[in-house]
């Protein structure tokens, strides 16, 4: 028996929008501690790791560990039928090969649900590779407004990486003299680090911008970059991308 209720159903919609362009199919792993997903893109140079902790759900029942393979494109289509203020319920069981998404509006919740919609989606068998990602010390960790990071990636990608139309340099300095803490840019640097990444992937990661006001970028020369979007009270979406290196 699996039953999860998320009052802010829009969170799962945003999560799907942030990962569906990177990964087509993925296993959602449910345990008593929460919902996790780990999947690589088809070229195996980028990885997404999702955590939604059980405490973040209004109701969370997972009798035994379950893995559900879902097509993220189809799941996104179903979740798009939910209003942004809808409560989302996910139901599954051990015997059927489907998962049910139920959307209920919260207009007059104490009395009755104004609208109930449910969608049943077929599950699929996915041979998911799982990578062990060790905790690491990073040379530099940058915490900055997520919208600003998205803007920078978009601008750089539009100029292109061939040098045909010229070059672009963007310097971001630490800035903590801001009214709101989420507007700050904080750079923790243990050692200088210089790395090159495929902007196409970085731009895909920024689809997670609606999930969080801030983004954390962790860099070490020997490791894939980690681009982390914290989901308040619930967990995170983390993206990993391997660097481009000179032969």
């Amino acid at each position: 028996m699996l039953e999860l209720r998320l009052v802010q159903g829009s969170i799962l919609k945003k999560v799907l929008e942030s990962i569906k362009d990177l990964v087509n199919d993925a296993n959602f792993d449910f345990s008593s501690s929460g919902l996790t997903l780990q999947s690589m893109d088809s070229s195996h140079i980028a990885l997404v790791a999702l955590l939604l902790k059980s405490e973040g759900f209004e109701h969370y029942r997972c009798d035994r560990n379950t893995s559900m393979g879902m097509n993220l494109g189809n799941m996104s289509k179903m979740l798009k039928c939910a209003g942004n203020d809808d409560i989302l319920t996910i139901k599954g069981d051990d015997v059927s090969d489907t998962v049910t998404f139920m959307f209920t509006s919260d207009l007059v919740r104490e009395i009755f649900f104004y609208k109930i919609a449910d969608f049943e989606m077929k599950l699929m068998d996915i041979d998911n590779e799982h990578l062990g990602i060790p905790e690491a010390e990073y040379h530099a960790i940058v915490k900055m407004p997520s919208a600003e990071f998205a803007r920078i990636c978009k601008v750089l990608a539009s100029i292109g990486d061939t040098g045909d139309i010229g070059t672009a340099n963007i310097v971001l300095r630490q800035n903590t003299t801001v009214d709101k803490p989420e507007d700050a840019t904080v750079i923790e640097m243990n050692e200088p680090v210089s790395m090159t990444f495929a902007l196409r992937y970085m731009n895909t990661f920024t689809k997670a911008t609606p999930l969080s006001n801030t983004v954390t970028i962790s860099l070490s020369p020997d490791l894939p970059v980690v681009v982390k979007y914290k989901i308040a009270e619930m967990g995170y979406v983390r993206f990993y991308l391997t660097p481009k290196m000179e032969e």
């Binding site: 195996h44 980028a46 990578l131 062990g132």
Partner: peptide, 14 residues
């Protein structure tokens, strides 16, 4: 030439 390692190179395949 510029090359890009796959993730297995950095992380343990469980």
């Amino acid at each position: 030439p510029i090359h890009q390692q796959v993730l297995y190179y950095y992380f343990l395949d469980l």
